[in-house]
C-alpha cells in the first residue's frame, strides 16, 4: 500500500471529521443543557443542506453567503421544534428525559424524512460551485477546498461557542443550567428560556453543518441517521464540557474511520467507529475531555 494513499486518506479523514465535530457540537449542546437526546439532529443537518442547496439553485446564493441565512432559518426551526415538542420533554424529570426525547425525536426522524422525500424528492443533491473541484496540494496530498471549509467552520463554531459560554452572561446561565437546572432557577435564571435558546442554537449549528455537507458531500432525505450516529459517537468520545474537544474528537473519529477503510477495507469504516464507541464507553465513559460526574 502506498504511503501516498495512506496520507490522502488521513487527510480525507481529518476533513470529514471536522463535519462530524460540527454536527456533534449541536447534539452535545442539546444533550448537555437540556439533557435530551435528539436523534433527529441529523435530519436538521439534512434540512440545512437542502436550505443551502435551494438557496444556491434558485437564488444563486453561494453556500458561504447563505450560511448566516441558514443559521437564522434553522434557529427559527429549532425554536418551533422546541415549543412544539421538546418543551414537553423538558418538563419531565431529568432521568426520564433521555427516554422521552428518544421516542419523540425518533418519530421526528420519520416525519422529516417522509416530508423531505415528498417535497425535495429522493434525489441526491450537491452544490457545485465554480470552486467545487478546486484543491491545493501539500506534497503528495490533495486537499479539496470545499471539504477543508467544513473543518474551518467547525473550528470557528467551537471557538465561538466556547467564547459565548465563558464570556457572556447567557453562557454562564447555560453552564449553570446544564450543571443543575433547579439551582439555576434559584439563581434567577429563566431555565425554560435557556432551554429554548440552547435548542435553537443546536438546530442552527446542525443547519450550517448541512450547508457544508451539501457543498463538500451530498444531501438526500435519508442522510440524517448516519450523521446522527457519528455525532453520537463523537459526543461519547469527547465527553461533555469542552466544545473544542468535540471537534478534536470528530477529527479523531474521521481518522479512525478512514484508516480502517484503507487497512481493513471500506466496508469496515462504520464497524471501526462502533468498536471505538464501545471501547470508550467501557473504559472511559466520561470521554477524553469530559468531567467525571459524581
Amino acid at each position: 500500500m502506498s504511503s501516498q494513499l495512506i496520507l490522502q486518506s488521513l487527510v480525507s479523514g481529518i476533513l470529514v471529521g471536522g463535519i462530524y465535530g460540527l454536527v456533534a457540537l449541536g447534539l452535545a449542546l442539546a444533550f448537555g443543557v437540556l439533557k435530551v437526546l435528539d436523534v433527529a439532529h441529523g435530519e436538521l443537518v439534512m434540512l440545512g443542506g437542502y436550505a443551502s442547496f435551494f438557496a444556491f439553485t434558485y437564488w444563486g446564493l453561494d453556500p458561504f453567503a447563505s450560511m448566516p441565512l441558514v443559521f437564522v432559518v434553522m434557529f427559527g426551526f429549532g425554536l418551533g421544534l422546541y415549543l412544539l415538542l421538546f418543551r414537553y420533554v423538558t418538563r419531565t424529570e431529568i432521568r426520564t428525559r433521555i427516554k422521552n426525547s428518544l421516542l419523540i425525536s425518533f418519530g421526528l426522524v420519520l416525519v422529516l424524512q417522509a416530508l423531505a422525500v415528498r417535497f425535495f424528492t429522493a434525489d441526491e443533491r450537491t452544490i457545485s460551485t465554480a470552486y467545487s473541484f478546486e484543491a491545493f496540494t501539500i506534497g503528495p496530498v490533495r486537499v479539496p477546498v470545499v471539504r477543508l471549509a467544513g473543518l474551518v467552520v467547525a473550528v470557528v463554531a467551537a471557538v465561538a461557542l466556547e467564547w459565548m459560554m465563558s464570556r457572556t452572561r447567557f453562557g454562564r446561565a447555560l453552564r449553570a443550567t446544564s450543571e443543575d437546572w433547579t439551582r439555576a432557577a434559584l439563581t434567577g435564571v429563566n431555565v425554560r428560556r435557556v432551554y429554548l435558546i440552547a435548542f435553537a442554537i443546536s438546530a442552527a449549528l446542525a443547519g450550517i453543518a448541512g450547508s457544508m455537507v451539501s457543498l463538500g458531500y451530498s444531501v438526500s432525505p435519508n442522510i440524517g441517521l448516519g450523521w446522527t450516529l457519528n455525532a453520537l459517537i463523537v459526543v461519547v468520545l469527547a465527553g461533555l464540557g469542552s466544545m473544542r474537544g468535540i471537534v478534536v474528537a470528530g477529527v479523531f473519529l474521521g481518522l479512525v474511520e478512514s484508516l480502517a477503510g484503507v487497512w481493513i477495507g471500506g466496508q469496515y469504516r462504520e464497524v471501526a467507529a462502533l468498536v471505538l464507541f464501545l471501547v470508550i464507553l467501557s473504559f472511559r465513559p466520561q470521554g477524553f475531555f469530559g468531567r467525571a460526574h459524581a
Binding site: 452572561r169 446561565a173 453552564r175 449553570a176 450543571e179 439551582r183 439563581t187 435564571v189 468531567r291
Partner: peptide, 21 residues
C-alpha cells in the same frame, strides 16, 4: 438550597457574578 448551592464547574467569581443575574 441544601449542599453544593454553588456551581462546581464555574469559578468563584463566575458564581458570584451569576448570583446577580
Amino acid at each position: 438550597p441544601e449542599e453544593r448551592a454553588a456551581f462546581a464547574s464555574l469559578t468563584v467569581e463566575e458564581n458570584l457574578d451569576l448570583g446577580a443575574y
